[in-house]
Design a protein around this nucleic acid. Structure first.
Lengths: 249, 249
DNA sequence: AAGGATTTGTTCGTATGTATC
DNA sequence: GGATACATACGAACAAATCCT
C-alpha cells in the first residue's frame, strides 16, 4: 500500500500544478481516463489522485473547458467534449493531406508569409548548399477541419523553386506546388523530433492555450535523385496531434 | 526595426517565464545560439531578446547550470557545458544499444521491477490478446555512459515469455533477453509519439530537473511472423534525446 | 601598469501569481 | 470566500571578476 498519491505532481518546477494536471488529464483522456459515457472522475477523486487541493484541480479543469477539451455540468460531472487527437504519420512518403485521410474531412495549408533571403546556417547545411545561398522561406499553417494542427517554416533552394509560394497559395499543398515546378515525387530523408513549450507565435497561429507543449520536427525532403529540396521546422500542437511512425513504410 | 522582442514568451500560462526560457535556451543551443567558443549571449542580451528582466534569465540559466547544460563564469560569460543531445533512431529495427552506437561508449538497461498481472486494456489491445490475459510487465531505465536516457514500461504475453525478466536483468538488453527465449529477431510495427511534462517518477528515474518535458512513445514490436510480442510506453528526457526517423529504414 | 567597459554575482524592495486551509 | 504562505517577476543599485585599450 502506498500513502502517497498514485500520480505524483512536481512542485517548485516552474510549471504551475494546475498546468501539470491539465496536461495529464488531456493526455489521460486518450488512455481511458474518462468512462464510456465520457465522464471524468470527480474533482475530489482527481484531487486525491494527484495529491492536491480540489481548487487546484478546478483551475486545471477550467483551463481545459476554455480550450474546448472538457465541459462541466453542475451536479452531473465533467465530460470530454473536444475531438480526439489526430495521428500524423511519418514515413518515407509523408504527405500532410494524404496522411490525415479518414481522420478529418477537410485539410489544407495556408501561407502566412514568404521571403527570398540568404539561407541560415542549419538550412544551408541540411540542403547541402553553400552558406548564405539564396533560399525561399515559407511560413505556413496546416488545418484539418478548420482546426490548426501544425505550423511550419520551410526552406527551398531559391534557384530551383522560384515562384513556389504562388503555387502553394493557390493549392494549399506543398506536394501540388512542387509538382507544378517539375518535382512529381519526393521522399522524406530524415526527421528529428523534440519538444518544447509553445511560444507566443505558436499560440497565435495554432490557437493554443498558454503553456501548451509543441512537438518539433526537423525534416529534410529529397527528390527522386536524392537531392535535398526542402528543409522544414514544424511545430505540432501536442495536445491535438500525435506523430505515428510505421514500421516497414 | 522591431520594438517588441524577437522571441516572445507567454505570461499567465501556468508555466513560469524562467522555465520557458530555459527550454528555449536548451533547444537553441542545438540551433547555434552559442558562438563557436560555446559562449552564450550575455544575460542582458537574452533578457532583451525574450522581453524579460535580467533576473528571470538568470533563474533560467541557473536551472540549466544545475542540469549540467551550462556553466557560468563571473566576468567572462556563460558557456555550454553538457554533452550534446543524443539522437535516438526509430526504424523498423529499432534497438536501444545499436541505435546509439558511436554516440555513447557504454549503454545498458536496468530492471527496476517486474510483475505478472492481468493486461491493462491498451496493452491487451495492442498485443492482440483477450482482456485480462496474463502479461509480464517490466519497468526499466536505459542509460548511455551512465546518464539516464529513457524509462520504459513494457508488456509481454506471460505465456510465451515467462522468465524474461531474469534474462533482461542478466544482460541489460531486451534484444538479448528475447533471443534467449527463442525470438532471434523482431521488428518495430508502429510507434506513436507525444509529449508531456515529467512527473515525479520521471524526475527520479531519469534524474531530470523539475518542469522538464518528456517525449512519450507507444510502440509495438512483432516477431518475424508478425505476431505482436511487446507493447511498450517509453519516456525520453526531451532535453537529452531527440528521436530520429530515417526515410527508407 | 592603469583605468574603463563588460559581464556575472548579490542584495535590497515591491507587486503579482499560485496553492492551501 | 478570505486569510496566509510561498513562488515568480521586476527594478535599481552595487560588488567582483575579466577583458581591452
Amino acid at each position: 500500500m502506498q500513502t502517497s498519491p498514485d500520480e505524483a505532481i512536481e512542485r517548485r518546477s516552474g510549471v504551475a500544478l494546475w498546468r501539470q494536471i491539465a496536461d495529464r488529464i488531456r493526455l489521460g483522456i486518450a488512455e481511458g481516463l474518462a468512462d464510456d459515457a465520457g465522464r471524468l472522475p470527480t474533482e475530489m477523486a482527481l484531487a486525491g489522485r494527484f495529491g492536491v487541493n480540489r481548487h487546484t484541480v478546478r483551475t486545471a479543469i477550467q483551463a481545459l473547458v476554455q480550450e474546448g477539451v472538457l465541459r462541466s455540468e453542475q451536479g452531473r460531472g465533467t465530460f470530454v467534449e473536444g475531438p480526439r487527437r489526430l495521428s500524423y504519420p511519418i514515413r518515407a512518403r509523408t504527405r500532410f493531406s494524404a496522411g490525415l485521410a479518414g481522420q478529418a474531412r477537410e485539410r489544407r495549408g495556408h501561407l502566412l508569409s514568404h521571403a527570398y533571403e540568404p539561407a541560415p546556417p542549419q538550412a544551408a547545411e541540411a540542403l547541402g548548399l553553400a552558406p548564405e545561398t539564396a533560399i525561399l522561406r515559407l511560413e505556413t499553417v496546416s488545418q484539418a477541419d478548420g482546426r490548426p494542427v501544425s505550423r511550419a517554416t520551410s526552406y527551398f533552394p531559391a534557384a530551383r523553386f522560384a515562384g513556389l509560394e504562388k503555387h502553394f497559395a493557390d493549392t494549399g499543398s506543398i506536394t501540388a506546388a512542387l509538382a507544378a515546378l517539375g518535382v512529381p515525387d519526393y521522399v522524406r530523408a530524415t526527421t528529428r523530433i523534440s519538444a518544447r513549450h509553445a511560444d507566443s507565435a505558436d499560440l497565435a497561429h495554432l490557437k493554443l492555450s498558454p503553456g501548451a507543449i509543441v512537438l518539433i520536427t526537423f525534416a529534410v525532403n529529397a527528390d527522386s535523385a536524392g537531392i535535398p529540396i526542402q528543409y522544414s521546422l514544424t511545430r505540432f500542437a501536442a495536445d491535438r496531434v500525435e506523430l505515428q511512425v510505421d514500421g516497414e513504410g
